[in-house]
Structure formats: structure tokens, C-alpha cells
Design a protein around this nucleic acid. Sequence first.
DNA 1: GCTGATTGTTGTCATAGGCAACAATTTATG
DNA 2: CATAAATTGTTGCCTATGACAACAATCAGC
Lengths: 146, 146
Amino acid sequence: MKDKTKLIQDIREFNRFYTRLIGLLDGHLLDSDYSLAEARILYEIYVGKQISASQIVATLSMDKGYVSRILKKFEKEGLINKQNFSTDARVSLLALSEKGLKVFHTLNRASHDQVDALIAPLAVAKQKELVMHMQQIMQILNGSGK
Amino acid sequence: MKDKTKLIQDIREFNRFYTRLIGLLDGHLLDSDYSLAEARILYEIYVGKQISASQIVATLSMDKGYVSRILKKFEKEGLINKQNFSTDARVSLLALSEKGLKVFHTLNRASHDQVDALIAPLAVAKQKELVMHMQQIMQILNGSGK
DNA sequence: GCTGATTGTTGTCATAGGCAACAATTTATG
DNA sequence: CATAAATTGTTGCCTATGACAACAATCAGC
């Protein structure tokens, strides 16, 4: 069982590597008016279509007070619409407004371009290999690539 | 060139996946007395053996004022030793003290155990596959797996 | 020797974001 | 059915995070 330690060390090396990479991507991205947390929440609302605050809290592992404040800000800026959830009066279902969609697309484009620049130097075959490895990792770690 | 967009989307999905994963690992880890930034700096000093503050700033992409303060705290707590660098009076070379090593090993062990728990459910063959994919990704992205 | 770059320190400040108390509601349990 | 326990979301409070700029000391190049 000695080389289990080696495996773990290798994984942690990758974690450090990817922490740095994501840090660079996210960091440069944030010349926008929105924080990383805000961008992630915006993304969750976008894909969730009709999503509750507690779902966002769960999937992003964020503090519910923090999320509540950000959502309030979004609402004040007119980025989201709230809608009552039929069977539970405590929850509202959130969706992006037109303006919210515009902001999302702006951030989305910037993030897209970041990744584009990252893989631009690679041959297309390498790019495909890269994605394949990523999907394999997701599949191994949680049993689903999607 | 339509499927370059698809590739980029897949990469970004992996980035979100791994952001969440690292967030969970790091988050749970921080029941310690040290912040994530402090742990990362401690790690850099550990592997760098004799490392300067500016090197830490460069490799971790952190603000130099921020790093300076953390190093001052480390020094006050007796975690590191400073040593004059022969050919440049501005820089000090940093190394972990005995106490610093102890703290590092504590954090290191906790981080190790986190990863251990993560891969524990997997068959050994799957664990090896996982590491292989990670190393491939590092190699593709920066031309070196180490 | 002077000018510009580099290393590190410090002051200042905005914000991020955790924690706990709370009201409103829903669910479970007797 | 009534009461207890759990859940959703809001808010107050507070500390740590971490950016930015000004600065002194030193170093490198012309």
C-alpha cells in the first residue's frame, strides 16, 4: 500500500496545478463589474431556468446569507425575476430577465475567450485529447460526464 | 470550426466541476488556524527550501503586500527563518523552522486525508487511471507533467 | 553617478463572506 | 390536531481577505 501515497501526491499536484490555472482564468476575467461568486450564481440561474435560492446554496456550497444578499442585488439591478413557487410559500423561483441574460452573455463570452486563448496554441488533436481526459476524470470521480 | 465552441464548453464544464471539487476540499480543510493562502505559501516555502518572497508572489500570483504580511506573521509565530541572500541585500531566503515544519506536516496530513477519502471508493485501477488523465492534462497544458 | 527597475514594507480601504438570530412556513410526531 | 422540529430566506454583525498605491532600500544598465 505504499504507492497509494504516491497516487495521492500526484492528485494533489494536479490540484495545485489546476488551482493556479483556474485562479488565472477567473482573476483576469474579473475586470467586469461582477464578482466571481456573482458570476457563478448568474450561471446557475441561467442553466437552472427556474431555480430556488436554496438550490444555489447547495450546488455552490455558499453561505445562504451571502447568496441572499447577492440575489437581492440582482433583483435591484433588474437581472432576475422572482416567481412564487406554487406548493411552498417560502421559496421563490428565479429566472434571468432580459437584462440578466445580456449580462450573463457578456460574462459568458469573456470566459469563453479566456479558455479559447488557453487552448489556442494547441493542435486540434491535442485539444480533443485534453477534453477527453477531462471527461474521463469527471466520470471517474462522480460517475457522470454530464 | 463549429466544434471548437463545443470543445471550449466542455473545458469550461470541467473547470466548473473542478472548481466545486477544490472548493470542497479546501473548505473542509480550513478548520485549521491557517487560511488557504497561508497554507499555499507554507507549501511553497516547504518545497522551495530556500525561496524568496518575490518567488512566492510570482508562482502564486498573489499581491506582494499580502504575502509580505503573511510572512511577517509566520516570522512572529516562529514558523520560518530568514537568511540574507549573499548577492542581493534586498531579498531574504525563507525556510521553515522546526515549528514551521510541524505546522506544515499537520496541514499536509489533513490535505492528504481529504484526497484519500475522495478516491477511497474507487478501485485501485480507477485511481491509477485518474492520475494518468491528470498528468496528461498537465502535460498538454504546459508541456510538463512535473 | 544617475536613472530606472526590482524587492519588500506599510497604510488605507472596500468587499467578501462566515456566523447567528430571526420570521415565516412546512413537515414530522405524538 | 397540536405541537415540535426542520427548512427557506433575510438581516445584523463582524473579521479576514486581499487589492492598490506610496514608499525606502537596493540593484542594474548606460
